[in-house]
């Protein structure tokens, strides 16, 4: 990339870039993320559409979870910028809900289902403020939406995988966000839970929200989602399912390993760690 001429003002917001819109709930601009000098995401540029269910699809190690964590500031960006509705994440936190992978927490932790769902309200509470009856009522209502209200008093270690996933979903719903990032919410759940979760995703879209979902089952992408983001270290394709979810793009995402890029990254990592080049 050539340096900007001195006369041109340096862009301060993604809205200054013609390809990004401040209307978009999530704008990712030139984002690169590296683990120990090894790039996991390379030059990601993406605008999430309004009112949409977006499947984030790609092989293992493609950087799908990393992308979500990087957007939420859980991982440092090596380069690039992420904005939500044209503003930095810090000012939009409450409007962004996150469903981590189930394995991210210790399910032996001494809390019950309602305790976990209420945690979705913590972001609104602030320091030292205690959970109010209203917060609890909202959390219970969200548990009801995912069909877990009967188990509100159940210790979380006694839940099945699908029930754990639904508790996480209820916790995110309790936050009452406008954009949701969900990391494999359908992993290892039974058919009934999958139907429940998809129904809730559709309700979210209906009410004008956008949901990004890391998804593994390619066969259900056209049925469940209207947009897709094909990812393998780079964005392979993105857009409405009927346009972007093509055999050619899928082949590029899954089969075509980006060998040159991998080799370059490996060489760079070796150099930085002081190991001899291959």
């Amino acid at each position: 990339m050539s340096p900007l001429p001195p006369s041109e003002p340096i862009p301060t917001s993604l809205a200054d870039f013609p390809e990004h819109s401040p209307e978009s709930p999530l704008s990712i601009h030139n984002v690169t993320v590296a683990y120990r000098h090894r790039p996991v995401l390379w030059d990601i540029d993406y605008d999430a559409p309004k009112r949409a269910l977006v499947a984030v699809v790609g092989p293992n190690g493609a950087g799908k979870s990393t992308l979500m964590k990087a957007c939420l500031g859980l991982l440092p960006l090596a380069a690039g910028r992420v904005e939500f509705w044209g503003s930095p994440f810090a000012s939009q936190r409450l409007r962004v809900g996150y469903v981590p992978q189930r394995e991210a927490v210790d399910w032996e932790f001494p809390v019950n289902v309602l305790d976990v769902a209420v945690m979705g309200r913590y972001g609104r509470l602030g320091w030292f403020r205690r959970v109010s009856a209203k917060d609890r009522a909202i959390a219970l209502e969200c548990l009801d939406r995912v069909g877990m209200a009967d188990l509100a008093k159940r210790q979380i270690s006694e839940l099945s995988g699908g029930q754990q996933q639904r508790v996480f979903l209820a916790r995110a719903l309790a936050q009452e966000a406008d954009l949701y990032l969900m990391d494999e919410p359908l992993a290892g759940v039974d058919a009934a839970t999958e139907r429940t979760i998809i129904e809730i995703l559709r309700q979210l879209r209906q009410s004008g929200r956008t949901v990004l979902v890391v998804h593994h089952d390619l066969s259900t992408v056209p049925e469940y989602f209207d947009h897709v983001l094909l990812l393998n270290t780079r964005v392979i394709a993105a857009g409405p399912v009927q346009e972007a979810f093509t055999p050619d793009n899928l082949h590029a995402t899954y089969a075509g390993r980006l060998t040159a890029l991998d080799d370059a990254a490996e060489a760079l990592a070796r150099l930085r760690e002081g190991r001899p080049p291959l």
């Binding site: 939420l72 500031g73 859980l74 210790d106 945690m119």
Partner: peptide, 17 residues
């Protein structure tokens, strides 16, 4: 409240700011 949240789910705690 804060310490329990961090202990149970660090990533949520950080995402919530």
């Amino acid at each position: 409240k804060e310490l329990r949240l961090v202990a149970f789910d660090e990533s949520l705690a950080r995402a919530q700011g």
